[in-house]
Design a protein around this nucleic acid. Structure first.
Lengths: 147, 147
DNA sequence: CCTTGACTATTAGGGTGCCTAACTATTAGG
DNA sequence: CCTAATAGTTAGGCACCCTAATAGTCAAGG
């Protein structure tokens, strides 16, 4: 096993971990007044593009199936999604967003995006470019981390 | 209240929020085998620079005092920190790292940095540059968010 | 002094969100 | 058919955060 790396990478790793910690902080505090928790909004946004099976939702969210089930049941009780047996495979369950769910996603996203956009307004153009360039890199890191 | 923003900012905000969610995921799952949880390592790293009071720790971590107390008690039971009344103000409690605690921080940081560095190795030079340029921006966003 | 109000930390109780293990129901292959 | 694999749910548990209530200490004014 190779555990020696370019020292610059190790330094960047430390810095990246620190940024992750700050990100956790921000993520947690974004729009605490809203009706939807961050986890619920992530799930709802995901199904708002079209019905998905529980397993797909779990995989896309990077959580285990029982954790997805738990959130889905909460959302169903709140009237924001529906659950129906997949006609092609009755083991599977199709989760679809309701009209109320779509409205909730819309307003929650607006509120949160407005809060973040306000933060972003405090950045220079160059800082915004740096941030925008890095976001796909973070997404890529996450997908390689999933494996 | 102004809730209209440059639409590019709103799009970026959406993308940034998604990156935050992914970051939370990575942060939590990094080194799940280690002795320290992510939250404990954050706290321990913080006091490793010198003793701090509970309130300061909570503020620096962005959590409430009772949550900090809870973590500190766990770490104390594990022998990684000590708690002593502040000689200047016996309401306050000084939290200091032990030798075992310092060792735990050291090895946990190494393991986690190695894991992240390995992820970073999968990036191109340009991607690494983009990431490195964005990390200070994230730190800046966080500090303006604190207010 | 000594009381009152502010401050520091802890305790008690609660909630979210994730996990693994065990189970049920369904599908598909030999 | 029967068995193995697959999809989801249920049950139980843990990490980590919160608010409200409490105990102890400090500091300032009467």
């Amino acid at each position: 096993m190779n555990d020696t790396f370019d020292p610059r990478l190790t330094g960047l790793a430390q810095e990246f971990r620190e940024a992750l910690r700050l990100g956790v902080y921000m993520f947690r505090r974004l729009d605490p007044e809203g009706d939807l928790t961050a986890a619920q909004l992530s799930l709802l946004s995901m199904v708002s593009g079209g019905g998905l099976r529980v397993g797909d939702i779990a995989k896309n969210l990077g959580i285990k199936v029982p954790s997805a089930t738990e959130q889905i049941i909460k959302l169903e009780r709140a009237g924001l999604v529906t659950r129906q047996a997949d006609p092609d495979d009755s083991r599977a369950v199709q989760v679809a967003i309701t009209q109320a769910g779509a409205g909730a996603v819309e307003s929650a996203n607006q509120r949160r995006n407005a809060m973040v956009a306000e933060l972003l307004q405090g950045l220079s153009n160059q800082e915004i470019e740096h941030l925008a360039a890095a976001l796909p890199v973070i997404a890529k890191l996450n997908s390689s981390f999933q494996n």
